[in-house]
Computed example of a mutant assay.
Amino acid sequence: MTTQDILSAITYQAASTTEHFEQIVALQNQNLYKSLTPEEQDQQGFVFAEHTVELLQQMASQIPQVIALYKNKVIGYNLAMTAAMEKQLPSLEPMFREFYKIRYQGKILTAYKFFVGGQVCVDKDFRGLGLLSKLYNATANLAGDDYELCITEIAVRNVNSLKVHQKMGFEIAGTHRDEFGDWYVVVWDIRKI
């Protein structure tokens, strides 16, 4: 099967079933920083925040949680959160606090209509096919015109993730440090797509 055959067989949609959310959690668990060796983290990247099926369903009630499906299996996902979910994941509260300090194009991030993009994850067997960009674009399209920016953070040591995000248009707006390490706050201006 060619790469083009694989790409044409992948579909993108909002997660809608318990099975979708369970598969997201399974893929997340395979790629959590604490599940990978430092070498694997350097080579493949990693995800940080941990979600439950229940939390994902709550998030999906506010904004689409986009999945990539291949033969009915979740092979990638892009989770999204609204600003209203600031307190739902304690590990992300330091990131949200930074949004009140960091500026983008002369304005504080919270002055924009934004959603938090990511975490984004692609199954290791499907990396290098441009799925990250497709997942983010599907999220922006499904979220609609209610938002101006997609904001997320990337661990400074997650060099691969930063490169891929910058390639698709994310810009570094600031940095911060919390108990887990150093982070880039990155912004994707979805008004430009």
Rank of each mutant, 00 (worst) to 15 (best):
T2V: 08
T3S: 13
Q4W: 03
I6F: 02
L7S: 09
L7F: 05
S8R: 12
Y12N: 00
Q13F: 01
A14W: 10
A14K: 14
S16M: 13
E19T: 14
E19S: 14
H20I: 03
F21N: 00
V25Y: 03
V25T: 06
A26S: 12
Q28A: 03
Q30K: 15
Q30L: 15
L32A: 00
L32W: 06
Y33F: 09
Y33C: 11
S35E: 00
T37R: 00
E39P: 04
D42R: 13
Q43H: 09
F46G: 08
F48C: 09
F48P: 03
E50K: 14
E50R: 14
E50M: 08
H51P: 11
H51S: 13
T52D: 02
T52S: 15
V53W: 08
L55F: 02
L55G: 03
L56W: 03
Q57C: 01
M59F: 15
Q62A: 09
P64Q: 07
I67Q: 10
A68R: 07
L69S: 02
K71L: 08
N72E: 13
K73I: 01
K73N: 11
K73D: 08
V74C: 04
I75L: 04
I75H: 07
G76M: 11
N78S: 13
N78D: 13
M81I: 01
A83V: 04
A84F: 05
E86D: 11
E86R: 15
P90Q: 07
P90D: 10
P90K: 09
R97T: 14
I102P: 10
I102M: 07
R103D: 12
Y104M: 07
Y104V: 02
Y104L: 03
K107R: 15
K107G: 03
L109S: 03
T110Q: 08
Y112C: 08
K113V: 04
F114L: 13
F114R: 02
F115H: 11
F115G: 01
G118Y: 02
G118H: 01
Q119K: 08
V120E: 05
C121V: 06
V122C: 07
K124F: 05
K124N: 14
D125T: 11
D125G: 00
G128W: 05
L129G: 04
L129Y: 09
G130D: 10
L131Q: 00
L132T: 14
Y136F: 14
N137A: 14
N137W: 09
N137S: 13
L142I: 04
A143N: 08
D145S: 14
Y147H: 06
Y147S: 03
E148N: 03
L149Y: 00
L149T: 04
L149V: 02
C150H: 06
T152L: 09
I154N: 10
A155Y: 12
N158S: 11
V159G: 04
V159D: 07
S161I: 06
L162K: 13
Q166Y: 10
K167A: 12
A173E: 05
A173I: 00
T175R: 14
T175M: 13
D178V: 05
E179T: 04
F180D: 15
D182E: 15
V187R: 05
D189R: 05
D189P: 10
D189E: 12
